[in-house]
């Protein structure tokens, strides 16, 4: 069949430009749609082989709380998707120390491995990014 699409090469290099993207999550997961939309942006950037960092601060730290079970309340449990990030080579996940502690949380509460940074370190991290998207 001549109308079949060509088979893409295995190590695609077609996107060329790689930028440092940082997604800063500041909202709790279910009250608004920001968390889910941000996660989709992260997956798309990763699918395009961009250099992606993800920060969880303020109520955004609740997004990666383990043992979420929103199904009974009629919502999709997209917290499971954060665990797919490793397969997308998104491994730079950071949590604000101040935000975590203020909410009575510890690193044991999170469903993914994160690096805890204080505000000064987060500020330095954001300063070196080319694109920062906060939601």
């Amino acid at each position: 069949m001549s109308d079949l699409p060509p088979i893409p090469p295995d190590d695609e290099d077609e996107f060329g430009v790689v930028k440092k993207f940082c997604y800063v999550n500041r909202k709790a997961p279910y009250g608004t749609v920001y968390a889910l939309e941000s996660l989709e942006m992260v997956l798309i950037a990763a699918a395009f082989d961009q250099d992606v960092s993800v920060v969880f601060m303020d109520d955004g730290v609740y997004q990666i709380k383990s043992e979420q079970a929103p199904e009974a309340a009629g919502m999709k449990n997209f917290s499971k998707t954060y665990r797919a990030l490793e397969g997308y080579d998104v491994e730079k996940l950071y949590v604000s120390k101040e935000s975590m502690e203020e909410r009575g949380l510890t690193t044991d509460d999170f469903l993914v491995d994160v690096e805890v940074l204080d505000h000064a370190a987060l500020s330095a991290l954001m300063a070196e990014q080319e694109v920062v998207i906060t939601s």
């Binding site: 295995d10 695609e12 997956l43 990763a46 699918a47 997209f78 499971k80 998707t81 665990r83 397969g87």
Partner: peptide
Amino acid sequence: EYQIAPAVRVLTKA
């Protein structure tokens, strides 16, 4: 497990 369909690159690798 993850509540999404994987991107092609991720599927291939997995």
